Simulated scan of single mutants.
Amino acid sequence: MLTVLFADRIENWPAYEPALTTALAEAGIDAKLVLPPADPATVDYIVYSPRGPVQDFTAYTRAKAVLNLWAGVERVVGNPTLTQPLCRMVDEGLERGMVEWVTGHALRAHLNIDFFLSHQDGVWRQEGNVPPLARDRSVVVLGLGALGGACAQTLAGLGFQVTGWSRTQKTLPGVTCLSGAEGLRAALSRAEILVTVLPNTPETTDLLNTETLALLPKGAVILNPGRGNLIDDDALLAALDAGQIGHATLDVFRVEPLPPEHPYWAHPKVTVTPHIAAETRPASAARVIAENIRRFEAGEVPLHLVDRSRGY
């Protein structure tokens, strides 16, 4: 029998315990779930959260893998005590949540819904306010992994002109895929709506800065459900004040929760959502965990194995 350590916050245990029990049984895995402080020498797999109680993996010499419950691994990938394989979380529920958040806010920007919500004053303002069709709107998605790729293809399915950019060249049906430094500049120059779904790595820190924000078409809209470090906050605020950026809808931040005094809260061209775009859901996440344990036990390639040299 395998021993699986649940190393997330204890308040999440009531939701995850039945989900993991069911998923492991359905995958044909004979396992028992334990909580810290279980004997590290008995643990075969660690279901991990960066907010959980386990941050030092030194004693877990028997553990075959650390299975992250979050899509982001920036809080653990550089941990010097982590010698086990690390898998990030990409599950159907998380992916659909991201797609729905991005699609909703892209359509909100495309249809200029905020304008009409703020002008419910009895004045008929049809002239100049009819939106273009989606096929006449250019949307750019930075990051074409599982989440970004799903967003790009959904937006393309709605008829938008979708360009995707990634560090390595990708191919997606209905999406113009670019890569590299010149590809990034070309992508930004056409981004009427820009969606950022990149991971947190040294290469992506402050990717949107004074120089790159200036490449966007004037009045562009930014949607960031990816990582807070992607944006230079001061540069974005300056670009919003200057009218270079028309609006920013932000779901992730360098410091979370976003401090009450942060200027994003009061800025008229910023919408803050509280990191809700892609939340891990116990039932679907448990199935990914169980499948990865099955794969490790069978000697198969695991899902979403982290490349430590790239940081994701």
Rank of each mutant, 00 (worst) to 15 (best):
L133Y: 15
L305V: 12
T273A: 05
Y48C: 02
L215Y: 00
H304G: 03
Y48G: 04
I46N: 02
T176N: 05
H267L: 01
R135P: 12
A266T: 15
G52H: 01
Q169E: 14
W265V: 12
D232W: 07
L20R: 05
P217F: 00
A278M: 05
G149Q: 04
S49F: 07
S166D: 08
I293V: 08
Y60D: 05
H262L: 14
G299Y: 09
G52Y: 01
S189G: 09
L86Y: 05
N224F: 08
K269Q: 14
P202A: 07
A25Q: 13
P173E: 02
A15G: 10
G143C: 06
S284P: 02
L155V: 08
N79E: 13
G157M: 10
W101G: 10
D241Q: 09
E92R: 12
G93C: 07
M98R: 02
I10R: 14
V66Q: 01
N229F: 13
G311L: 05
G143E: 00
L240R: 02
G72F: 11
D30G: 09
E127S: 13
T196Q: 12
R227A: 10
L178Y: 00
P263F: 07
V34F: 00
T154L: 03
A63W: 11
V252A: 02
V272Y: 04
L24N: 03
L215V: 06
R137I: 15
L172V: 13
L82K: 02
L305G: 03
N12E: 15
A214E: 07
L194D: 07
A278S: 13
F115E: 06
V195Y: 06
H304M: 09
L188K: 01
G52C: 08
T171S: 13
G183E: 02
A248Q: 00
E211H: 14
A214Q: 05
T210N: 11
E17V: 15
L133F: 13
L215N: 07
M1V: 12
V195L: 11
A277P: 01
E182R: 10
D233M: 03
H119P: 02
G145V: 06
H247Q: 14
L208E: 00
K269W: 08
A277D: 04
V162W: 00
V66S: 01
N224A: 05
D56S: 01
G72M: 06
G72H: 05
R254N: 12
T42W: 12
R167Q: 14
G148S: 07
A23Q: 00
P14V: 14
T205I: 15
A106F: 06
E279R: 15
T103H: 11
R51F: 15
I222Y: 02
A286V: 07
N209K: 06
E11C: 14
L198H: 04
P302W: 06
V54S: 01
A71R: 08
P274L: 10
R287N: 10
H304V: 10
V175P: 00
H262K: 08
T103F: 15
E256V: 03
Q55H: 12
